[in-house]
């Protein structure tokens, strides 16, 4: 069979796409929810207090800048103990957990993370009094940042 140029291009594109399909199990929203429940303990996560900043569209999934800020005085009982970042569509949901202390001054941190595909990124804050707050952002990813 003789392929014309257009058919050949379509075939190679299909092959390339097939080759990129993940072979490993992906984190699912369910696994992510379980992870959040384990982190939150008895408390039920509420919205508010915590702000997750992430780009709406990330061209390169290898380095996506993310920031979290929690509204807290960081002294006495009004303190943030830790903030966990999870991602729903990565091979593993865990991304990082930040631990703050009274010396931190404010509960804010910035880092760069990998995103395999377009997905929700979730930040969960645990306060010293046991309450838990959550924020979520969808990040559209043009080029995935895992595997290869």
């Amino acid at each position: 069979m003789q392929l014309n140029r257009r058919q050949a291009l379509a075939l190679s594109a299909a092959a390339a796409f097939g080759g990129l399909l993940p072979v490993v199990a992906r984190a699912t929203p369910e696994a992510t929810a379980q992870r959040i429940a384990a982190f939150a303990g008895a408390a039920k996560p509420a919205m508010g207090k915590i702000t997750l900043t992430a780009p709406e569209i990330a061209e390169n999934g290898n380095t996506v800048p993310i920031s979290v800020t929690v509204d807290s005085a960081m002294s006495g009982d009004d303190r943030v103990e830790s903030v966990m970042i999870v991602a729903e569509g990565n091979p593993n949901p865990e991304v990082a957990t930040f631990h703050f202390t009274a010396l931190s001054g404010v509960a804010a941190a910035t880092t760069r993370m990998r995103l395999a595909k377009t997905q929700n990124v979730i930040a969960v804050a645990k306060m010293a009094d046991g309450s838990v707050y959550l924020d979520q952002k969808e990040v559209k990813v043009t080029i995935g940042g895992c595997g290869g």
Binding site: V95, H99, L103
Partner: peptide, 23 residues
């Protein structure tokens, strides 16, 4: 005295970067 700490998973980018605060 601890100021800030982070548990890191493979989902953090190469050349890990952290920005945080201290008082």
């Amino acid at each position: 005295q601890p100021v800030f700490a982070c548990d890191i998973e493979p989902a953090i980018s190469a050349n890990p970067y952290f920005e945080f605060n201290a008082r």
